[in-house]
Design a protein around this nucleic acid. Sequence first.
DNA 1: GCCGTTTTCGGCCCGACTGTTTTCAGTCG
Length: 579
Amino acid sequence: MARPNDEVAAVLQEYADLLAITGGDAFKSRAYEKAARALAGHPADVSRMDAKALRAVPNVGASIAEKVVAYFRDGSVPELDQARKSVPAGVRELVAIPALGPKKAMTLYQDLGISSVDELAGAIRSERLRGLKGFGPKTEENLLHGIALLRQSGQRVPLGTAMAVAEEVVAALTEVPGCERCAYAGSLRRMRETIGDVDVLVAADDSGPVMEAFTALPFVTEIVAHGAKKTSVRTTEGLQIDLRVLPADAWGAGMVYFTGSKAHNVHVRQIAVRDGLKLSEYGLFDTESGERVASATEEDVYARLGLPWIPPTLREDRGEVAAGLAGELPDVVTRDALRGDLHTHTDLTDGVATLEEMVLAASRLGYAYYAVTDHAPDLFMQRMTDAKMLAQRERVRELDGRHRRMRLLHGTELNIGPDGAVDWPPQFLAGFDLCVASVHSHFALSRDAQTRRLLRACENPYVNVIGHPTARRLGKRTGIDADLDAVFAACARTGTALEINGQPERLDLGDEEILRARQYGVRFAVDSDAHSTPGLDYVRYGVGTAQRGWLTADDVINTWPLRKLKRFLRKEGREETSG
DNA sequence: GCCGTTTTCGGCCCGACTGTTTTCAGTCG
């Protein structure tokens, strides 16, 4: 749905990057960035809007509206094509390295002719950066670290990027005559945080038309392999998509096989062997007679092995097979179980939608309650003030219950300072219905210092949720170094929830940490951290991540009825401090 | 380039931190 919006936003962002690298007007570059954000976050499909309608989108003026129209009409923007000629594509890749911005990238290119990440790595190794103005030993170290981080993520793409492509493929192939079923499988269906390639399955008697339609998709740039049963392509984003076509009666076995993981499949196959059976993507067969005993649905296949249907997000061989055999699989939390979202923004700070727009969109999701949590003043660029916050609260109270009786909570996203202090004193914090508190700065403190600041935040009687607890950015920044077990224990002790932030670049906490944290009896909040109305949908990735952490609805505070949630939000120790 | 207006150009998200420098540029949130 929002895909054309994201597409044109990426184009404008690229133009903004190129303007910054070539050292043009910084405000012009910023203007393109703002427009990109506004278009990505716009609820309506911008590819269907004319220039006049586009100009009505905030931060989109005549010039950018024209470029957007040109992009959807011609598939290109002349000014961007021009800019691309003056800066090699590899130079723009350089700014993806943490600690390396447009200025330094341009210096590297102009002075040393470096135009790719590999060339930069080589230049550092051969000490060619020595003596270059602005590049000291510490910078070299930081760049090497950044390059390592970038390479570690390799060719994998964020979950959200892969999902958008996969859903488009599934929608297109579902329309092909003869396609009986179509779905994505693989690590995407398991909701892993990054995706190497996308697996799509189709059930059809004749694979021809489906394969043809697949290779003809507009974003396909390369056909890697093309056969009757399997076709692989590469997309404009460099993502590989594998399509497998199966007979309809093998659908269940195929979905089991291609959803994986490999370790899960090995484990399940061992059980089959033990029972004198053989499992392949075409079905479960009796080893002796060769007769097919199950294949039509996943439930059939698992049932014949003495297993209940296992949610895809659990299929990692992390104990789910044993739990299934013992009848002890968790009843994992689902999106439908969410009654509200506890971390969202508006255009009062860095969101692109108004309070009214966000509230209306949230009510359409069927939420019973919804929290507005704009940034607090210590994130200086947001220019928050007490007066602005109080005025917003007044407006929130007016809107409370107006849309489908959805109840509104007025909150804030506090900043956890280096010493664990937050933006406002207790008296002011007491006026909020809930407070999320997050780390937005000082990522390089010592382990002890990081742990201390998080513990102090947990112990603050007004802090209800620790937002994106490790502050990691996938492929960009590892999480802060803290004794998370101490933090988990503190959360459990103080009645502070840990957030599972659904932003695809964050997914924080991640599944491994959730699995650990739940041992402490911690509660969690699955939030979108939305900065636009389409952004509210990010809870889907948060829910997927929560499932991967084996969480049930009871573990997640925003599945609870409002009354129970409000009790949780009144932390112990509040009365003494509230004065 | 966008916005808002004091209607035609001036201001635009501001401050901290890092690493480099020797007084500050670049990057980040």
